[in-house]
């Protein structure tokens, strides 16, 4: 165990000293601040608009109760942050996975490490543990920064339930980022050319994070018109469901496309926990977790499979092959 902890410590230190990782981290934090600033400014503008409408109605002698006031849900402000975590969190996972193996393969230090009383699994476990701690600390700082900005800018106080929900989002984010870490590590271990492994990781990132969710979204009949097709036809939600039930095959295919991406499961889960999806707003943690159990299983399964593949790649001696 001591060997694993030593490797984990070295891994943690190496990454925190790496310029590439630090630049990426700074970028993520800048985007987090920007996103919350944009969301809070957008909300303020809605409040001003609402007050203006109420004033106009009152001057006309009508009651302002006919229009609903915009409601403030602090966790809803995190939609943009989650979008950036989906995109940049995955890149952080890729870069950590790449650096973790490439630095050893590029300098042929894996052979040196294995000439010591160290097993292949000690190295794999040490690297995984060190980077897990790093990702968890990054996510914890991200959550703390988010909370601090919401509190200092908007004076938002989170309830215990909301903090618990944020905690579960943090856990899901850990699985998500570490999936990309393990996946990239496997590619770097397998490929003879390190840059090619990085580029292929980016191609996989592009497919999982951006293309598959985009295909699913654009195939949605309701998304074909700005503001939504059913809204433009003044069709209520239950009726909409009734109509769409007649297009079961199409909807099944569309859903299957979306379900093949780990990002979509992560997004559905985190949007439900944060109440970004209105139907989950104000619901208990237990209710959300129970209702979105399949997304939990999928996110954990993607992570578990990638982790298994990483250990499997370490088992084979081919990872000691020289790089191009």
């Amino acid at each position: 165990m001591q060997k694993i902890i030593t490797i984990a410590g070295k891994e943690y230190q190496d990454s925190t000293r790496n310029k590439l990782f630090l630049i990426l981290l700074a970028f993520l934090f800048v985007l987090t601040v920007t996103s919350i600033a944009v969301a809070s400014s957008d909300f303020q503008s809605k409040v001003v608009e609402y007050n203006k409408s109420v004033q106009i109605l009152s001057s006309l002698g009508k009651s302002g109760e006919t229009i609903s006031a915009p409601q403030f849900f602090p966790l809803k402000m995190l939609r943009g942050v989650m979008d950036y975590l989906e995109i940049i969190g995955a890149i952080i996972g890729i870069i950590l996975g790449y650096l973790s193996i490439a630095k050893e393969k590029g300098k042929n230090t894996l052979q040196l490490l294995l000439s010591r009383p160290l097993g292949k699994f000690d190295i794999a476990s040490g690297k995984f543990l060190g980077n897990s701690l790093l990702v968890l600390s990054v996510l914890a700082i991200e959550a703390f920064t988010t909370y601090f900005i919401m509190w200092s800018v908007g004076g938002a106080q989170l309830s215990l339930v909301e903090i618990a929900k944020l905690g579960f989002v943090l856990l899901a984010s850990y699985f998500y980022v570490m999936f990309f870490f393990c996946f990239t590590s496997v590619l770097v271990l397998k490929f003879r050319s390190l840059p090619n492994a990085l580029i292929v990781s980016f191609v996989v990132w592009l497919i999982f994070v951006l293309i598959i969710p985009q295909i699913g979204d654009t195939m949605d009949p309701d998304n074909q018109i700005p503001g939504g097709f059913f809204k433009s036809m003044s069709i209520a939600k239950p009726q909409e469901k009734e109509i769409m039930a007649r297009f079961k095959t199409y909807e099944t295919v569309r859903n299957a496309v979306e379900e093949s991406s780990v990002t979509k499961h992560y997004e559905r889960l985190s949007f439900a926990l944060l109440g970004i999806k209105d139907e989950y707003n104000g619901k208990s943690v237990g209710y959300v977790l129970k209702d979105r159990w399949n997304d939990w299983v999928w996110v954990a399964a993607f992570f578990g499979i990638a982790l298994f593949l990483e250990y499997f790649a370490f088992r084979k001696r081919s990872f000691l092959n020289k790089t191009d």
Binding site: T34, S35, V38, A39, S41, D42, Q44, S45, K46, V48, E49, R79, G80, D83, Y84, E86, I87, L210, P213, Q214, D217, T218, N223, Q224, I225, P226, G227, E267
Partner: peptide
């Protein structure tokens, strides 16, 4: 685009033009 229209990143991937007016503040 997020800074000019307040649209979240994933909303920008929809090829249908989103005609909601940008927040006025």
């Amino acid at each position: 685009p997020q800074l000019t229209s307040a649209l979240d990143p994933t909303a920008l991937l929809n090829p249908t033009s989103i005609q909601t007016p940008a927040p006025q503040n």
